[in-house]
Simulated assay, not measured.
Amino acid sequence: MIHRTWRHQPALVPARYLPGGDLAADLAAGAGPVAKARVLLVAAAGLRLAPLYVAAVAGISIGIDEFAGPQARTRIVAANSTNVANLEQHRVWTLFTSAFVLGGGIEPVQVVLLLLLTGAAELVWGRRRLAEVFLLTHVIASCLVYAVLQAGLRHGWTGQEVARAADVGTSYGAHAVAAALACSLPVRARRVLVPAVLVLVVLPFADARTFTSLGHLLSTLIGLLAGWQLRHRPLAGRLRRPGVQRTDRPALYIFGTPQQAHDALVFVLHLREQQRIRLDDAVVAWSDAPGPGAGRPYRMHELQTRDLGVLDGALAGGAWGIVIGTLAGWPVAGLVAGAAVAAAVAGVHDTGLSDAVVERAARSVPAGRAVLVLLTAPADQPRIAAVLSRAGGIPLSPAE
């Protein structure tokens, strides 16, 4: 009898993969404040998306104030708000344009804080992840607020004036980025920052319970889930490139302990972060030897970086479901249907390395040892082999 577990065992105590780990290592290696500041300045010189977005928001706001005036701002805000009136009329562009329009004039402090927050996220995650967390959370949180307000209007829980209330700005995305950034940092920082970002949204919601405070709370919770995903499933949600197929022969490396294999996996993930290799999937697998008699069954343990579980699928499916449901006018139905369908698909569909390949790899090594299974481009395998051999990894042919 074979039992599987997807949880970390007690031996794997260090932090999991952290996006931006290379920047953290460079900062730790800096001798003194001046050297650390130089590392940050060099890294900040490569920022592109964060300053571009902040400049767009500031430019639009200044342009409205200088050339259009207060009345035009009121009309622009109304036309781009993600409120019930607009979304029931299928004005779906408001889900995106609302992130670029401010309800009031631009404030220098607001611009600086937004630039620092998004800039830090881009340094740690990269441009693609920043865009995904900020924009997708802004859209999803807006749809969730719309669903709540729609239900409130139908059941008489709230006044009709809320249907045309202004709902624009950068706050949903900013709260999500702050929460995801807090959750994706090392353990010591997370212990302080995660409770802090929760307190900053829970207290205003408990005090006022407006749809804006609800949106901030929802976007923060979504951001925490995104930060968790960045650390635990770093390859999830990435499309496979044509150069690497499921039928390709994976690269296998044996390590003395699961902890050593885990550390090697983190190193390989950072190589991919540096764009030095192409990596489509990576799994650490190990097994327990069956004990005497039937009291202790054979167990195989896996640490996945790509394949989504049922809960992961339900969260992702629910997020996309509520967006699609909002476009159709039935956000709650879309949320439920999307979560159910995606959870069912995730439960039966293997998106990464096949379970059969991973199980054979785990069975091929002695109990107590671990195997790192990598699906990568053949041209990158010699470089990976040279790096992992120095880390104590022993190459193993898939046929062995």
Rank of each mutant, 00 (worst) to 15 (best):
M1C: 09
R4A: 14
L18T: 09
D22I: 15
A35N: 12
L40S: 10
G46I: 08
A58H: 01
I60K: 03
I64D: 00
E66R: 12
E66H: 11
A72K: 07
A72L: 12
S81L: 05
N83K: 13
N83D: 04
L87F: 04
S98I: 08
A99T: 08
F100N: 02
F100A: 06
G126E: 08
H138M: 08
V139D: 05
C143A: 07
R154N: 07
H155V: 15
E161D: 15
E161M: 11
R164D: 15
Y172M: 15
A174W: 00
V177I: 11
V194S: 03
L198A: 05
L203D: 06
H216V: 09
R233W: 06
A236Q: 06
G237T: 10
R238H: 09
D248E: 05
D248L: 06
A285I: 06
A285F: 05
G295Y: 00
D312Y: 04
L315A: 13
I322S: 05
I324K: 11
V332K: 02
V336A: 15
A339K: 02
V348D: 07
V348S: 11
D350Y: 08
T351S: 15
V357A: 07
P366C: 07
R369S: 15
L372F: 11
L375C: 07
P378S: 06
S389E: 12
A391D: 04
A391Y: 03
I394P: 04
I394K: 13
S397T: 09
S397A: 15
